Simulated scan of single mutants.
Amino acid sequence: MEFEERLVALASKVKGQAAAVQTEEATKNAFVMPFISSILGYDVFDPQEVIPEFTADVGVKRGEKVDYAIVKDGAIQILVECKPSVGALKIEHASQLFRYFATTNARLAVLTNGIVWQFYTDLDAPNRMDEKPFLVLDLLEIDDNLVPEIKKISKASFDLDSIINAAEELKYVGAIKREIAAEFREPTTEWVRFFTTRVYEGAFTQKVREQFTSLVSKSSRQFLNEQVNDRLKTALGSEAPAAFLPLAEPAPSPASEVALAGEPVEDSEVVTTPEELEGFQIVRAIACSDVRPSRVVARDSKSYFAVLLDDNNRKPIARLHFNAAKQKYLGLLDADKVETRHPIDALEDIYSFADEIREAVRRYA
């Protein structure tokens, strides 16, 4: 299994088990040790590679332990401190890492709750761990740009010089991206003012701020959706011949093919509409949190536009019923292939069913 596939597999496990993992020990067993083993490639049961409960007395502090010390080439290279997965990580959780970092040869330190992995080094001052991580990996929302950097930390590809050289750029690029994401979720006054003053000539009053806060937020969401759709359209352009094969017309069943009142009689020719393509792109974007985009394909038919996993009719992710003149429906199938049609007013309403779409993907993947 390739490195990326192992990472996706562990991420899928984390998503499925996170709710059941409540303690620090459970977090170590369920998430942290598998990450060290399958992703970083170290034998967690070999004390020459992974030392659990590593102790190094620091000044007046005696008997303190860091959860894991990872050894490479006979020297401690990485320190790992774990916290329960049910809580968010805070810099206060890294107090032992700060102390141990200065007394060992390690240049890398990791603070994790099994879901989020924060990687630290000593960019600001030699032998003193930075207060901010240079890399943050969230297994619930993997940034593909970080995968090659994580791979450098693995045993098979460990390259400390390359890691440190890239750390400063990663640190600031990651921090800026997180700030942008926060502004998109909940724009600050400064963010709203920044855009308002470029499109509105009047004074930036309280009333104007309130009006433009919602406008900036709406514009940000639409911009992101358009960027995702543009990327997917580009991908579809190169895959179009394989992605849209005619779908054999299935025999209707009472459970899955209930005719809707008022649906027009369909033409004999299959016509793929821009709305169907855009709806497919949204479903595909949602499914990409669990599988590679290339595995999510579409087939159009006279009855509906099907989104499938692995181009397999037995692995339906969703169906787009967009042929009706007045009402569009998103069809979702349960484990028994029984379809429920959900009325939607706009294509962006598909995002409301993201959990159901991902659940369908996980059933097959």
Rank of each mutant, 00 (worst) to 15 (best):
5 E>V: 07
6 R>Y: 05
13 K>V: 15
17 Q>R: 15
20 A>P: 06
21 V>K: 02
21 V>L: 00
22 Q>Y: 03
28 K>M: 10
30 A>C: 12
31 F>P: 05
32 V>F: 04
33 M>S: 13
38 S>V: 06
42 Y>N: 06
47 P>I: 04
50 V>L: 06
52 P>A: 04
66 V>F: 07
66 V>H: 03
67 D>G: 00
67 D>N: 05
69 A>S: 02
70 I>F: 04
73 D>R: 13
77 Q>A: 14
81 E>S: 06
82 C>D: 12
91 I>G: 13
95 S>T: 07
97 L>Q: 02
100 Y>C: 05
101 F>P: 01
103 T>K: 11
105 N>Q: 13
108 L>P: 01
109 A>W: 01
110 V>H: 02
111 L>T: 04
116 V>W: 01
121 T>H: 00
121 T>E: 02
124 D>E: 14
124 D>F: 00
128 R>G: 10
134 F>S: 01
143 D>W: 01
147 V>I: 09
148 P>W: 02
149 E>R: 05
150 I>Y: 08
154 S>R: 05
157 S>E: 14
160 L>A: 06
167 A>E: 02
168 E>Q: 14
169 E>R: 15
173 V>I: 14
173 V>E: 10
175 A>F: 09
178 R>T: 07
185 R>W: 09
187 P>D: 02
192 V>R: 03
196 T>K: 03
198 R>M: 13
203 A>L: 08
209 R>A: 12
212 F>C: 01
216 V>N: 00
219 S>F: 02
222 Q>P: 04
227 Q>W: 13
228 V>P: 07
229 N>Y: 15
233 K>R: 12
235 A>Q: 15
237 G>T: 10
239 E>S: 02
240 A>T: 11
244 F>N: 08
247 L>S: 09
249 E>W: 00
251 A>W: 06
253 S>W: 01
255 A>Q: 11
257 E>Q: 12
258 V>C: 01
262 G>S: 05
263 E>K: 05
274 P>C: 00
276 E>V: 01
277 L>G: 06
277 L>W: 07
282 I>M: 09
286 I>D: 10
291 V>L: 12
294 S>I: 03
298 A>V: 05
298 A>W: 09
306 A>Q: 04
307 V>N: 11
308 L>S: 09
308 L>G: 03
309 L>V: 03
310 D>T: 04
317 I>V: 14
321 H>G: 14
334 D>I: 07
334 D>N: 10
337 K>M: 11
340 T>K: 14
340 T>V: 15
343 P>V: 08
343 P>N: 07
346 A>I: 09
350 I>R: 07
353 F>M: 15
354 A>M: 10
354 A>C: 08
355 D>G: 12
365 A>R: 15
